[in-house]
Amino acid sequence: MTGFDFSLIADHSALLLTGAAMTVYVVIVSFVLAFGFGIVVALLSFLPGAVPRAFLSAYSIVLRSIPFIIVLFIVYYGLPFAGFHLSALLVGILALSFYKSAYYGEIIRAAIVALPRGQFESARAVGMSPRQAFVHVIAPQLVRGLLPPSTNMTLTLIKESSVLSTVTIGELTYQGMVMQGATYAPLECFAAVSGLYWALCAGTAWIAGRLERRAGLAQKAAIDRNPLAASFLSFERPKVRR
């Protein structure tokens, strides 16, 4: 070992930052698509009858069973079969969004199920219209319930996006490999790449933390609603509500 050469990282900083920017871009687009699709999936699961719920379970079990790298390659080689010839970047984003939609769908469904019963009705009882009830009573609570698990899932999304390097999408991991090919300095390359991922994750967690704080006493309220969570997260006994 010959010591850590910072100048290597400095020399390739443009490359690495391009990669990081691409990762941010891919993550943001995939998040929006996956979350949007997750909402659809979650709402579908509330349709009457056993079929929609069973469909959501099957959908999520299948996607939770298969490694993302394989889903990515199936989509990558499968889309041309279906007559779609898309760029690697688009394929990667679609595959990642599709893969994550199952997870977001489960989170969204859980947040809806966790709403205390009678909230909508009590809003209606004071004379709010259905729309007002949603805006003033339901939505704020949904956001609180959704934030913490969505944050976790989004951190996973950031990390999982590194797999896109295997289909030559120029995100952070890929650019790290390019740098490694040019410099034969794995230590510096992967230290820089890890550091950037770490920063991206920490940044995302920080933003999410701010949002959670802005949402007020979200966590306390959530704990109180959920005795199971209280048993994990709180040192006080949950209040008994009959």
């Binding site: 951190l155 794995p186 790449v193 890890s194």
Partner: peptide
Amino acid sequence: ASFVRGTPLLVQIFLCYYVLPSFG
């Protein structure tokens, strides 16, 4: 723990495979 949770598994695999040799 923060490092492990803040970086992709793929990168950690590369770290173990490509970087550890530089430490012998």
